[in-house]
Amino acid sequence: MQIFVKTLTGKTITSEVEPSDTIENVKAKIQDKEGIPPDQQRLIFAGKQLEDGRTLSDYNIQKESTLHLVLR
């Protein structure tokens, strides 16, 4: 499924993921596309910071959901 990751600069990254993918996994995909190390990434969805060990389905993230990427 496709999800969108919006950066603070307003850029939107499209990523191909599975509901069973972990947040860590998603951060790795963002690193592949943007070159941002996962340890600098914080992903936010519905006002919550997403934890690395959890999966997209844990957070009820569905296709075409938009996550927000904040850098630390």
Rank of each mutant, 00 (worst) to 15 (best):
L56M: 05
R42F: 13
T12H: 05
K33W: 08
T14Q: 08
L67M: 05
L71T: 09
L43Y: 03
L69D: 00
P38K: 15
I44C: 13
S65V: 07
V5L: 07
V26L: 14
E16V: 12
I23H: 00
K27G: 01
Q40A: 10
T9A: 12
L8M: 13
T9I: 07
K29R: 09
T14D: 04
I61K: 02
L43R: 00
D58N: 05
Y59V: 01
L67Q: 01
I3T: 00
K27R: 05
T22R: 07
I44Y: 15
V17K: 01
R54Y: 13
A46H: 13
Q41A: 07
T22V: 04
I23W: 02
T7E: 03
L69M: 08
L56W: 03
F4N: 05
A28T: 10
E16R: 10
K6Y: 07
E18P: 03
K27A: 03
I3N: 00
K33N: 06
D21I: 04
A46P: 00
S20R: 08
F45W: 09
G10K: 04
F4Y: 13
K29I: 12
D32I: 13
G47Y: 05
S65Y: 08
Q2F: 13
K48P: 01
K48N: 09
K33D: 06
R72V: 14
S15I: 15
Q31G: 10
G10R: 04
F45P: 00
E24H: 11
Q49T: 14
F4K: 07
I36A: 04
Y59H: 03
L8R: 12
T12D: 03
R72S: 11
L69T: 02
K11S: 07
E24T: 08
F45A: 02
Q62D: 09
V5E: 02
L69E: 01
V70F: 13
R54M: 12
F4R: 06
T12I: 15
K6R: 11
S65T: 08
Y59T: 01
I13K: 02
P19L: 10
L56Y: 02
K48C: 08
Q41S: 06
L56K: 00
A46F: 10
H68Q: 11
V26H: 00
R72Y: 12
N25F: 11
D58V: 03
A28F: 12
L50V: 03
I44S: 08
L43D: 00
D58M: 05
I13F: 13
L8N: 12
I13A: 02
I61L: 03
A46C: 10
V17E: 00
E64M: 11
Q62V: 13
L69S: 02
V26K: 00
L50T: 02
L50E: 01
V5D: 01
L71N: 07
H68T: 13
E16N: 11
L43C: 01
V26T: 02
T9M: 11
V17N: 03
T14P: 06
T22P: 04
L67F: 04
Y59F: 03
E16S: 11
D39C: 12
T9L: 11
I23T: 04
T14L: 12
R54F: 12
T9D: 13
Q62R: 11
K6D: 03
Q49C: 13
S57H: 10
D21M: 11
H68L: 15
L8S: 14
S57W: 08
I36Q: 03
L67V: 08
G53F: 12
I44N: 05
R42P: 01
I23R: 00
N25L: 12
K11H: 11
S15D: 04
G53Q: 11
F4M: 06
V26G: 00
T66H: 15
N25D: 12
H68P: 00
E16T: 12
M1S: 03
G35D: 05
K33P: 04
I3P: 00
K11C: 09
Q49L: 15
Q62E: 10
F4Q: 05
